[in-house]
Design a binder for these strands. Structure first.
Length: 425
RNA sequence: GGAAGAAUGGCCGAGCGGUUUAAGGCACUGGACUUGAAAUCCAGCGCAAGGGUAACUUUGCCGUGAGUUCGAAUCUCACUUCUUCCGCCA
């Protein structure tokens, strides 16, 4: 969230950022107007409050008669105050709702552009395999190997769900073990998280109010709704909400394996085939809290961490800097890692590493106390490391062989009970 | 599910209708003393929103939201969370 104080002094900067992102300025102008109104009301409200305080205080040693005399006059002031307070509250709510819909501003080093076409490739790692036979996509492979069942899942839950089976389940589990151990091996703290969260938690990380339609809502009679987490970023970032972190403990590095749930409201008809875009998937997520000075280093470390995993898994990939128009709502800079998918002949997003600045921590009230004793909002970052489904897809497609079998990357062997190749049953 | 209690600044903790302008302590910051440190002493020290170039100043904030009152941290009601006890169930 943009701080009101900062916003008021940087209208031009905000406007520039919004234009770069391709946002409409409608809300921006509404905000300007409300701030002016709010100023007027605040002034008259404060004057009345001051008067009432002074008059009341003057009465503290008065006789009953004196109090009786002044009563109706003071009561009148109070009524006026209450009516102004109602107006103020209304304006304040409108203002807050508008500000919550303002996205984060891009950092200066984010490439300008309108859409993903303008994203900037930073580097390529690994060389895509050249296959001298007709390759299969992961759905065909999964079907032939008997490890993926999409027909039965649609019978039970509809589209965008899947069953893994046999050594497919084992591979999924092995991948999770490998990823978690990889991050734990770097000293990150593991969290196992709640999958249902409150509205306020979704608001704190930036999913709500703007992307309410993308979340699964769990309603219970006579009670506040829960929401299924779209990523463990939500519970892990909120792990420290309303907290003050000791500066000497920063940076704090967490990782968490969780299931993720997304309604995919805006993507009907897109990626309907296979495991690429599911309502439910598993992901290992990195989440970090740090100071502004530490943030660029943490960001770079996170990107290289994800890249290292892909390299260990022997998956060709590239790193791309998202342009201003393609940046996520809460992010001020994002590097996507894209893995090579032979069946589609393109690089597909497999990890997204973002630096949020103070955008989330101002919403979630995550602070730290600096050396001078001042409270400052912490910087938050997160990145996928990695999603299980898409990684599975990449492993199957990149490691397929002419006889229809799939080689399992060496780093997973020890989690596969000795299995090194997936073969047809 | 039932009963009782609690929630105050970064932390501990007093206050339970009007000198609260939230005591006192710890922590922190600046200074004095010291070769340096510790200890001691002096001073400062919350968040947010208005006004002012600034010094400064006004308002709001004692879990959240309503209410009573000229006046609420203090009284009333509802809610949330936590603690203890009882019951029930994995």
């Amino acid at each position: 969230m943009i701080e009101l104080r900062v916003l008021r002094k940087n209208f031009e900067k905000l406007k520039k950022g919004l234009i770069e992102r391709g946002e409409k300025l409608e809300n921006f102008f509404k905000i300007l107007k409300i701030i002016e109104n709010r100023k007027k009301i605040t002034n008259s409200l404060q004057k009345l409050q001051q008067k009432l305080n002074e008059e009341s205080k003057a009465l503290s040693n008065s006789s009953i008669e004196e109090i009786d005399q002044r009563r109706s006059f003071l009561r009148n002031i109070r009524t006026n105050i209450q009516s102004l307070e109602t107006d103020f509250q209304h304006l304040e709510n409108t203002l807050t709702n508008l500000i919550l819909k303002i996205p984060n501003l891009p950092q200066d080093d984010v490439p300008l552009g309108e859409s993903e076409k303008n994203n900037l490739e930073i580097k390529q790692i690994g060389i895509p395999n050249k296959f001298n036979f007709k390759i299969l996509d992961h759905v065909e492979l999964g079907d032939k190997l008997g490890i993926l069942d999409l027909e039965r899942s649609s019978k039970i839950s509809g589209s965008r769900f899947a069953f893994l089976k046999g050594s497919g389940s084992l591979l999924n589990r092995a991948l999770m073990q490998y990823l978690c151990n990889f991050h734990a091996g770097h000293g990150d703290i593991e969290l196992t998280v709640p999958y249902l969260v409150k509205y306020s938690s979704m608001q704190a990380t930036g999913q709500f109010p703007k992307f309410f339609e993308d979340a699964f809502q769990i309603s219970i009679p006579n009670s506040e709704s829960y929401y299924l987490i779209p990523t463990s970023e939500v519970p892990v970032t909120n792990f420290h909400s309303n907290e003050i972190l000791p500066e000497k403990e920063l940076p704090l590095r967490y990782f968490s394996h969780s299931h993720c749930f997304r309604a995919e409201a805006g993507s009907a008809g897109r990626d309907t085939r296979g495991l690429i875009r599911q309502h439910q998937f598993e992901k290992v997520e990195m989440v970090r809290f740090c100071t502004e000075q530490q943030s660029e280093f943490e960001f770079a470390e996170m990107v290289s961490r994800a890249s290292k995993i892909l390299t260990e898994l022997n998956l060709p990939h590239r790193i791309v800097s998202l342009c201003t128009g393609d940046l996520g709502f809460s992010s001020q800079k994002t590097y996507d890692l894209e893995v090579w998918l032979p069946s589609q002949g393109i690089y597909r997003e497999i990890s997204s590493c973002s630096i949020f600045g103070t955008f989330q921590s101002l919403r979630a009230k995550i602070k730290y106390r600096d050396a001078k004793g001042y409270l400052k909002p912490a910087f938050t970052l997160n990145g996928s490391g990695l999603p299980l489904g898409r990684t599975l897809v990449a492993i199957l497609e990149n490691n397929q062989q002419i006889n229809g079998t799939v080689k399992i990357p060496k780093v997973l062997w020890k989690y596969m009970n000795g299995l090194k190749v997936l073969t047809r049953p």
